[in-house]
Every structure is written in structure tokens, then in C-alpha cells.
Design a protein around this nucleic acid. Structure first.
Lengths: 113, 113
DNA sequence: TTTTAATACATCTAATACTTATGTATCTGA
DNA sequence: TCAGATACATAAGTATTAGATGTATTAAAA
């Protein structure tokens, strides 16, 4: 990863939930590629982090799954449950607050979208 | 802490280095109070996290120390070494990039300073 | 045609960082 | 006088995750 991995710690769940808010359903590999593409290779999720996190989110009842076969290959799609949608908003909002707090603390100017 | 602690993970060194860039010298307790004040109680550093980190930064050669007595009480001041100053810029800059990347990824609008 | 790279799932170990708990001691104000 | 704040610090336990490894299929290149 381009970013020191410590930085990304704690943001993985938020990233996954947000992506699923916008894409309805995604599978693991797709998530890694989408994040890679959207961040210009700056964030590359490792499988060792991704899959345990997906399983954890599912166990928390935030994600539901459906399995499909593409040819002989299994593909497992993840979607947000109702609670997942609520949690997603909450997490993104918390992260936005965090960014503002840190911007102030570190006196950072960010680009405006 | 108001922020879920996972969010703050990986930012402690950056916060310390940045504060020392602006204050020349600070002692541990002062750092915890300054962060608490500047963030409106949203980030409260615990001593169990702070002191090991200060010692680690010192061991890396990024900080220098001087001990003073206030009455009979010891106070240990930390300052940035030359390498520490460089590292501070680097860390803050990396974090700024990280924020921009995450803002884009999560589609967040932040307040401009 | 074979073999390499990409797709796609997943687990395990070791390292790291942090929280929580604990410990010591001084100073100040009610 | 004694509780709360100041001030240092370590230790044990928890959690996260990078990196390694494993399995298998499919597509593309050599």
C-alpha cells in the first residue's frame, strides 16, 4: 500500500459499507479492485484483512450474502441489510467528523470536491 | 474517546510530531491536555498509549528530551530533532493525502478552514 | 499448447499498536 | 485533610491486519 498501513486501520469497515451503499451488491475481489481503482492504487486492500472483515460484518448482521456460480467458479455477493444501511451512514458521518477534527488539529487544507 | 478508537489508530505519532513542530517543547501531560482542548474533548490520549510512543520516537532519534524539576516534581520535555522536523512534515503531508483520498472514496464534503 | 497472470475464495501466524489496569509520587484547593 | 489534578511510567491482555500460504478456475500470451 502507498499509505502506511496503520493509517488505513480502522477505516476498512467504513470503506466496505460505503461501497455497498452505492453498489447494492459486490463480491470480495470486486471490492479490492474498486478501491484500488478509485484511489489510484493508493489503497490496496489485502485479502487477509478483507475476508475476515466481511465475515465479521456478516456476523454482526450488517451484510447479507448470496452465492452464484460463474461457470464453475464460486462468487459470493455481499449486500447491506437494513441495519447495514444505517450503520453505513453512521460510519461515514463519524469519519467526516474525524477528518474535520484532524484537519483542525494538524492545520491541513484539503482540496474541495 | 468520543471517536471510536479504531479511527485514531495510526495517527498518534503524527499528532505528537505536529504539536512539537508548533510548540518547540512539550511534556507528556501537556500533550494530552492540548489535544483534548484543541479537539473539544473528541480525542483523549491515554497515558498508556502516549508514553510508550514518546519513548519510541525518542529511540528513533526523532525527539530529544530535557528533564526539569517543578518543585520536587519531575517534568520531562520533548523537542523535535532535525530528523524529527523532517519526519513531522512527511507524516502530516501523508495524512493530508490520506484525507483527500478518503474524502474522494467516501464522497465526503468537508468544511474549509 | 503450455504456462503465466488474473480471478476468486479463504485461513493462519507473527507483528504491531492500543486499551485497560496498575503503580508511584507531588501539588492544590475545598 | 483529603479528593482531584498533575506527572511520570510499565505490564498484561486484546485486537487488527500484513504477509504468507493454500485451492481452484479462466483467459491470454508465448
Amino acid at each position: 500500500m502507498l499509505f502506511s498501513s496503520e493509517l488505513i486501520k480502522g477505516t476498512l469497515k467504513t470503506i466496505i459499507l460505503k461501497l455497498l451503499t452505492e453498489n447494492k451488491r459486490m463480491y470480495g475481489y470486486e471490492i479490492t479492485q474498486t478501491v484500488k481503482d478509485l484511489t489510484g492504487d493508493r489503497i490496496q486492500l489485502t485479502e487477509g484483512a478483507l475476508y475476515p472483515t466481511l465475515h465479521a460484518l456478516e456476523a454482526e448482521g450488517l451484510l447479507t450474502t448470496e452465492t452464484e456460480y460463474i461457470g464453475k467458479r464460486v462468487r459470493k455477493y455481499y449486500s447491506l441489510s437494513k441495519e447495514g444501511k444505517a450503520k453505513s451512514k453512521e460510519k461515514v458521518s463519524e469519519f467526516a467528523d474525524f477528518i474535520n477534527t484532524m484537519k483542525f488539529l494538524l492545520d491541513i487544507k484539503t482540496k474541495q470536491a
